[in-house]
Design a protein around this nucleic acid. Structure first.
Lengths: 182, 182
DNA sequence: GTCGCTTATCACCATCCGGTGACATTTCAA
DNA sequence: TTGAAATGTCACCGGATGGTGATAAGCGAC
């Protein structure tokens, strides 16, 4: 329900209606929305772990640039598929409800671990503010995926067909290379 | 009110309460929320025009790279200051209500005009997908400003103090240069 | 003054929300 | 069989929402 409709009408009544049961059961078994958020957070962390698993299994990248390219493109694919994570991103800035905050924390923790594991001993080239650059790259990916899912485009760039997305992948690849080298 | 609280509790009752008048007046003078959105849209367009005005008055950039750097940094400053525009960006992906859609359209139109005027005859270097690159740059700026205003950071990069923002400016400058040249 | 028009205020409606208490039903062990 | 615990269902509460009709207050023209 969160993945499909977001956090707009997310409440006890709507959940119970959709689940086909009485809302009282939500209070009895989860202790209200707070407890339910806890459960959803745990579920999301598990799902995220499963999604991240295959991405770490390939051959280790040879350079920091190659690593970041892999990371960026992987994140793009993962976000494109996972509508719940899109919604979390979309609602992060709009309505930071306790539920959203909880889910963001669960996601950030898991993502950080993954990044750390994959980085290993690779170092960015000197003279480049890698954390800032990476923040810019990740931020753009998040924004573009969210806008694509909401409007099918961003700032005049269409993001609907596979060709559109391939174009974006190429641009991201070129951008990462021009920052960190091949 | 939109700038401060966003679109979360934006309704006839809340507006009337805040304005210190009866909600009936909103229906009488604006024809409900739809008409009010129209008026706000027009107001936003005017405000945006005023904000964009001084940015176009400087010396014309010498290269496409210099132009884009100027555009990106200007957009960053403008967004940082204009909380209403932050809210619009934040709510674009979350809850595309008719009001948000109207405001987005009003903003996109004005921004497009501005971009077109400033570009003039400058051409990007060959072999670079400039629209895609620009979309990435603008997307990252939007996401970073929204996250900064909501959380004070993004993906582990703090965005609170002036020094933080200067660091981001430097990164954006370096990034644009590495794409388009100096 | 008094009429008519614009302006503002109030009371009210149906609907939804989160939350709670009381009741009916099932399950299962003593 | 009986009785208690677990489970499911329903009705209700106060408060909020969007929306509308009736009523009162100001105010200028004749």
């Amino acid at each position: 329900m969160l993945a499909e409709e977001g956090f707009a009408n997310f409440g006890v009544n709507a959940i119970a209606r959709r689940a086909g049961c009485d809302k009282q059961l939500i209070y009895r078994y989860y202790g209200g929305l707070d407890g339910l958020a806890e459960a959803i957070g745990a579920d999301l962390a598990a799902e995220l772990t499963a999604d991240l698993q295959p991405l770490s299994s390939g051959p280790a990248p040879q350079s920091y640039g190659a690593l970041m390219k892999h990371l960026a493109l992987s994140l793009l694919e993962l976000l494109k598929r996972n509508r719940l994570m899109q919604q979390i991103n979309a609602w992060e800035g709009a309505a930071p409800s306790p539920l959203v905050v909880k889910l963001i924390a669960a996601r950030a923790k898991r993502m950080g671990q993954w990044m750390f594991e994959m980085r290993g001993a690779l170092k960015p080239p000197p003279g480049v503010d890698a954390p800032a650059m990476n923040a810019i790259i990740i931020a753009s990916i998040q924004q573009l995926v969210v806008s694509a899912s909401a409007n099918g485009e961003f700032s005049g760039m269409a993001l609907r067909t596979d060709a559109d997305w391939r174009r974006l992948q190429d641009a991201i690849s070129a951008l990462v290379e021009s920052i960190y080298g091949p």
